[in-house]
Design a protein around this nucleic acid. Structure first.
Lengths: 383, 383
DNA sequence: CACTTTTAGGCAAGAGTCCTTACTAGAATG
DNA sequence: CATTCTAGTAAGGACTCTTGCCTAAAAGTG
């Protein structure tokens, strides 16, 4: 939707914009002289000098004490004030918690890894997250001003809580990252599921670089996908876009059934769980006997049905496949071969990044921290 | 994606913003005095006077000659110059072409309807469109500065051409609205399919008013849907989002098959065509005998499969159903009853607007025309 | 070593935009 | 006829950005 009422023009607005230009320059480059900022932004030197003076007085920018070397008059280097703080980045899976702190320059200030027992519940995960946040808070100059969390479960877009969907695995369990981090993190806590973060990372740098419309299919313990449309991961009303367990597809004997049902029928679920038995599945996909071939054919067709839905409802330029068993050798080519014979084929690729969810969450954290700093520099002039 | 480099601040930018405020005010209200514009925008009277003077000199705004009545000094009314032109709005179906001209105030300046033979090809449609545009161009003060076209076929997002998808009906046929309108319309031609326009109209004013995430399912001669996510119709890479003919769903005997196949198996297609035989289907849905019930059950389940895909990949807050046979009495309640027993039910509603595709295209045309006027008032200061 | 070149930064002047305040013109109200 | 109300104008001030010129200091050059 296009903004209907343009902003009211004012001189204050110009000043704010100048300051934003200066701050953004210093976010892209660790240290700059005023002349460099001027050259980089195209804004005149006196104006930049004014702005730097303002921002220095406000405590957002500091003279690093360093001086230019080389020809010409010595110049002073300025940089963002260290007390501007950092953002917490955390990834939570049933296997453990990984947490980092990143500053507005994108530098990582420390990483804490906590392994969890397979049977550990959400309580233990919450404690690990809390502890990690506490440790990281001590290692950075300023405060933790916001957090970006990746979770290996569906996330409610409104509340940020992990949600348990019927007949879908609940790997981490009932957890509210916002509540856990409230004492340690002073600002907003953004939570999304790992598949969405992975898709953002792949969009930025991976095989899908430059492609603004694609679907990322994650085939692991859980079944999920991310829909990137017009360059943004779409989350839908509740944030449950990509929860494809109940998507109607083709099962054994060409019967229509929910995607997750296919695995139940094939006996590929963990006992007393709706999670997929990944080791068994990987082992089976490695085999070449007749039974394995039959199962493989069923899986390929089931995945084809899911892709037909993705093509119909998201029209991706490509489909990226990732996940523990999605990357099994031969699977992608088999799916590709099947899918390329359907009426609307789309190229398939394998995911390339190693811990994509952390990468995706991290870059979002940097983005949010930067915009938070810019916003707080000039308290919002809202109506 | 967030803008990375904020705009360069300049005094010219302020002036541009003031002018934009004035223009937008005059787009929302047919005539205003300078004092009224000032009150409405919150910008001071002298500044508004300056801007109005500039815009009048530039020919964008005119003194209407009317004067205020009532207490106090008489004021002069200003309005947008009539020569600012209008936008063409056209809807093309196999049954005919409807075209209108709308100005920046949103007023419709004339409507031309041309009926087409059922067997008329794209040539005839193109001629009808061209003729309608020619007539409308004569009826308005200025030029036709852009066009917004709705077509009853899939539209390629990149080229704006109608495209024929395998095993899907091609109702209008091979047509390139941009090429047809190039002689008559001086600016851009936006083309999208009727279902997407209808969804935009429903989003704005209809049953889905205020809901930013929903899916609009169109059940007519063709099978289509629109995905509205974060308040915007998503089109995907090629613009083929919602082309659900090949979506894998449940057919008779619970067999997995493409949505369109279900109708083939049920014998509900027009002879030698992939289009659905709507009259036959409507007649059948009205019956109550055993065969009708059986077909109805199959259809309900097939639609349920499509909805499961929509829920998985779009997470709508609601599903709106429209189309010639989608609105048949009882169908929606039957689908609703079936769907509410699935693991992830979503409320269903019937579409409410009468010619939604035209309404949707019209409001977009007004929006685009307005932004075109604002942009041309101050030639883009791009790099 | 003296001189030129190069560069960061400061200062002053000027143009432009917006705002506030005060004022004028003209019409309705009582 | 005085009062009241309103649209528009004029003057002055505050503020921002830019241009152009200047200084200081380091590095190269002969």
């Amino acid at each position: 939707m296009v903004r209907m009422t343009p902003p009211k023009p004012s001189l204050e607005m110009l000043r704010t914009l100048t300051d934003e230009n200066v701050l953004r320059s210093l976010m892209a480059h660790p240290r700059l002289t005023r002349a460099e900022i001027s050259a980089r932004t195209g804004i005149s030197k006196p104006t930049i000098s004014d702005s730097v003076q303002r921002l220095t007085r406000a405590g957002l920018v500091v003279d690093t004490g360093e001086r230019t070397t080389g020809r010409g008059r010595v110049g002073s280097y300025y940089s963002l004030a260290p007390q501007l703080g950092a953002a917490l980045v955390a990834a939570i899976t049933p296997r453990g918690v990984v947490a980092e702190a990143v500053d507005a320059l994108g530098h990582v200030h420390g990483q804490v890894r906590t392994a969890l027992e397979a049977s550990a519940g959400p309580r233990v995960a919450a404690e690990a997250l809390d502890a990690a946040a506490g440790q990281l808070a001590g290692r950075i100059p300023g405060r933790l001003r916001l957090a970006v969390v990746s979770a290996a479960d569906p996330v409610d877009r409104g509340t940020g809580r992990l949600v348990h969907l019927p007949d879908a695995p609940f790997l981490v369990g009932d957890l509210d990252p916002s509540a856990v981090l409230a004492p340690t993190v002073s600002g907003p806590v953004l939570v999304d599921n790992d598949v969405n973060w992975a898709a953002r990372a792949e969009h930025r740098a991976g095989c899908a670089g430059g492609v603004d419309d694609f679907v990322y299919l994650h085939l692991g313990e859980g079944l999920g996908c991310a829909v990137v449309s017009d360059g943004v991961v779409r989350r839908g009303h509740r944030g449950l876009v990509g929860e494809i367990a109940h998507l109607c597809t083709a099962g054994p004997d060409g019967k229509a059934m929910a995607f997750t049902e296919v695995f139940a029928v094939l006996g590929l679920r963990r006992p007393a769980s709706t999670a997929i038995d990944v080791p068994a599945l990987v082992e089976l996909l490695a085999r070449r006997d007749e039974q394995a071939e039959r199962v493989r054919a069923v899986l390929v067709r089931a995945i084809g049905g899911v892709l037909s839905a993705a093509v119909s409802l998201a029209d991706p330029r490509m489909v990226v496949i990732g996940g523990e068993w999605g990357l099994c050798p031969g699977l992608i080519t088999a799916v590709d071969e099947h899918f390329s014979r359907t009426p609307r084929p789309v190229p398939l690729t394998a995911a390339v990044l190693s811990s994509p969810e952390l990468t995706g969450a991290r870059s979002r954290a940097v983005e949010e921290l930067r915009s938070l700093i810019v916003r707080t520099a000039h308290p919002a002039p809202q109506a």
